[in-house]
Structures are given as structure tokens and as C-alpha cells.
Design a binder for these strands. Structure first.
Length: 212
DNA sequence: TATATGATTGCCT
DNA sequence: GGCAATCATATAG
């Protein structure tokens, strides 16, 4: 199966639009071993420059709205369509897509996908997964299943080997929203989008529903 | 150099 | 649902 990558223009738009539109789209990776891994995005979250939960938040000029070219992460937020891969809690890598026109900052975190192709390799990478639905139902799990880590940071997601592609057929199922998962700041923003009822959506609880 | 902390996962009760 | 794991990065001293 071959897929065609989305153009940069798809990502050079408001982050919330990109996050919502990305549902149903495909994440494709031509693995160095020769096989192809692919899955349909079923859950994503938006992170914008006007957002305390956004990593380079402090690098955004509050008056102009433009990102200042300083700091380590800021460098990767000036070109839409690239991968921002971040490490949290030990060895968990999270995959983001950089959004917004050049000069502005934003990113979409890909939180869960439904595997379509390359299941055997995903099972090899994810020895802890008891069932197939545990292969990719979380942001750290899907990077593990695909074999992605910090070495893929900064890659363009608009060309092989790693890219996003349009779905074979348009999405007809309803898209639901909630607050984002696992945050300590910006928990009030309903910027998580997911496909209601899909078995591969991550099991986490939205931040604003958590007891403290 | 030293320490705090997080966009998580998986195993335990 | 509780909680430990023990990584990369930012920021402080």
C-alpha cells in the first residue's frame, strides 16, 4: 500500500483546525528494516502559543504573538509540518506535529492511532501489550510501536520515511472533544479531539475531571 | 555539576 | 485506583 504525504500547507493553519482535521488521517513510517507501519489517528491534542502548557510558551512575545528565536525548542517551531519529539517520564517519547504559519508557534500531539499496517513489527516493539488494542492507545505507546525516539526529532512529516497522509475515505463518525490529559497547567482548555467509541483511544482521564 | 519535574506506562492491590 | 520507574531537559548555583 502506498500513501501520499500531506503538503506543508495543511500544517500552516490554526493549530485547533489542524488537530481536529488530523483525526482519521494516517501516520505512515517506512521502517529502516524495509516494511511499512501505518495507523489511523484517533486522538490528538492542540498546544498553542497562547497556552501555559506549551513548552516554548516563555519564548513567545506576548505583544506581537511572534515566537522569539531563542531557546532549544523554539528553533523547531518556526517551520510547520516538522516533528517535535519530546521525552517525558523516563523513556517515553511523544510525537507532535508543528503547526501555524512560519514565525508562529503551535503543535499537535498525536495521542493514539488505530494500527492498519505492520502489526507484526508493532507487536515486537511492544512486548508489554497483552492485546492489540494496547499497541498504540497512548502517546508513548505509539512511538514505541513505531520505533520512534529523539533521533527522529525535527524530521519533516511531509515526506518519507515518516509522514502524514490523507485517509482512504472521509471520516463519517462523530468527533468528540474534552480537556487535555495529564496536564497541570492549561487544564481548562477543551483542546483534545478524539473519535468517540474507538477502541484505540487512550484510557486517560481528562485533566479537568481528575480529583485533586 | 546538581536538582526538580513532567503532554506516561505498567504492575500492583 | 495507587504508585514506582529512574529519562531528558531546563534551570539554578
Amino acid at each position: 500500500m502506498t500513501y501520499s504525504p500531506l503538503p506543508i500547507a495543511f500544517f500552516a493553519r490554526p493549530t485547533l483546525e489542524v488537530a481536529r482535521d488530523l483525526l482519521g488521517h494516517l501516520l505512515v513510517y517506512h521502517h529502516p528494516a524495509g516494511d511499512t507501519l501505518a495507523g489511523q489517528i484517533v486522538e490528538a491534542e492542540a498546544y498553542t502559543q497562547n497556552d501555559p502548557a506549551f513548552h516554548p510558551w516563555k519564548s513567545v512575545d506576548r505583544e506581537t504573538g511572534l515566537i522569539k528565536p531563542e531557546g532549544r525548542t523554539a528553533a523547531f517551531f518556526d517551520e510547520p509540518g516538522r516533528a517535535y519529539i519530546y521525552n517525558v517520564y523516563y523513556s517515553n517519547w511523544l510525537l507532535n506535529v508543528v503547526t501555524e504559519p512560519e514565525g508562529y508557534a503551535g503543535a499537535v500531539l498525536i495521542r493514539a492511532i488505530e494500527p492498519l499496517e505492520g502489526l507484526d513489527r508493532m507487536r515486537m516493539h511492544r512486548v508489554a501489550a497483552r492485546r492489540d488494542r494496547d499497541l498504540t492507545n497512548g502517546p508513548g505507546k505509539l512511538t514505541q510501536a513505531f520505533g520512534l525516539d529523539g533521533s527522529h526529532h525535527g524530521l519533516p512529516l511531509t515526506a518519507p520515511p515518516l509522514y502524514l497522509a490523507a485517509p482512504p475515505e472521509p471520516l463519517t463518525v462523530p468527533i468528540a472533544t474534552s480537556s487535555r490529559i495529564g496536564l497541570t497547567r492549561g487544564i481548562d482548555r477543551p483542546w483534545r479531539f478524539f473519535i468517540q467509541g474507538n477502541a484505540y483511544v487512550s484510557p486517560g482521564t481528562p485533566s479537568d475531571q481528575r480529583k485533586r
